[in-house]
């Protein structure tokens, strides 16, 4: 618990998490607002989470990676390891705090987007009733939290902001969807890519076609996909923790 408090103090005594949070909220909710305003007729629920699941997530991943890479950049990671020689617990505490904040941001952005769509288009049926609809909106926080774990792990491994951010953005925003272009094999590979699986968890099938992943032959259920996504995150984190423990700080 002490270590969680330590990481909380560290995170909130600098400005970048505030800026990243604000940017993520504005971009996520803003995109939904633009869509809702530009749509003639009713806004479907499947349209409300494009901003949160496709755009704002990138900002949250960057925030999570920066939480680690700035420690390496300014060598405060060494001060951290001096104060807490058990590197694994220090880094796990950081991961938990960052993932929790990312999850919270995910819920704020998801329900904020939903709310803004309702305000802009009051006549639309945006009621959240079915489990698929709940997953679509409330699931965003889970995806953010797990995504943040991946970002922290990459941050620990790469140790520099530019490298970590580049890897995360190219991976999450480009690489996984580009692989789908490979004839025949592409969609088969995509069924096992982590962020595609995260989207699969959020998708409502044909009710949310904009989420991507259409045509991918998923072998897992929606919750199975989330579990797979989480499994990849944990595996990456374990590798990162082992590397951090072994290497000279």
């Amino acid at each position: 618990m002490t270590l969680l408090a330590v990481e909380r103090i560290k995170l909130f005594s600098t400005r970048s998490p505030y800026w990243c949070s604000a940017l993520a909220i504005v971009m996520g909710i803003g995109l939904t607002a633009i869509f809702a305003a530009a749509t003639d007729g009713p806004v479907p629920l499947g349209l409300t989470q494009i901003g949160s699941s496709q755009l704002a997530i990138a900002v949250v991943l960057v925030m999570a990676a920066i939480a680690v890479t700035t420690e390496y950049r300014f060598n405060t990671i060494r001060s951290t390891f001096l104060a807490v020689p058990n590197r694994t617990s220090a880094l796990v505490a950081k991961t938990v705090v960052v993932a929790f904040i990312a999850g919270l941001l995910g819920e704020i952005i998801a329900f904020g987007s939903w709310g803004v769509a309702k305000v802009i288009s009051p006549s639309s049926d945006l009621a959240i009733n079915t489990s698929a609809e709940w997953r679509h909106v409330a699931g965003v926080g889970l995806v953010y939290a797990i995504g943040a774990v991946i970002a922290v792990a990459i941050g620990i491994l790469v140790r520099q902001t530019a490298g970590a951010v580049a890897i995360l953005l190219v991976w999450q925003m480009l690489a996984e969807s580009l692989i789908g272009i490979i004839p025949k094999a592409g969609v088969k590979i995509q069924a096992w890519l982590p962020f595609i699986n995260a989207n699969h968890f959020l998708s409502m099938g044909s009710d949310s076609p904009e989420m991507g992943g259409t045509g991918v032959d998923f072998k897992l259920s929606e919750w199975g996909s989330l579990g797979y996504f989480a499994g990849v995150a944990v595996a990456l984190l374990v590798v990162a923790l082992v590397v951090a423990k072994r290497r000279d700080a």
């Binding site: 408090a5 330590v6 005594s13 600098t14 300014f74 060598n75 405060t76 060494r78 001060s79």
Partner: peptide, 19 residues
């Protein structure tokens, strides 16, 4: 120079103390 440039001196010592 092992400090975060945008963190106050007090906050720097506060997290160390807490840990």
């Amino acid at each position: 120079k092992w400090v975060h440039p945008n963190r106050s001196a007090r906050a720097h010592l506060r997290w160390l103390a807490k840990s």
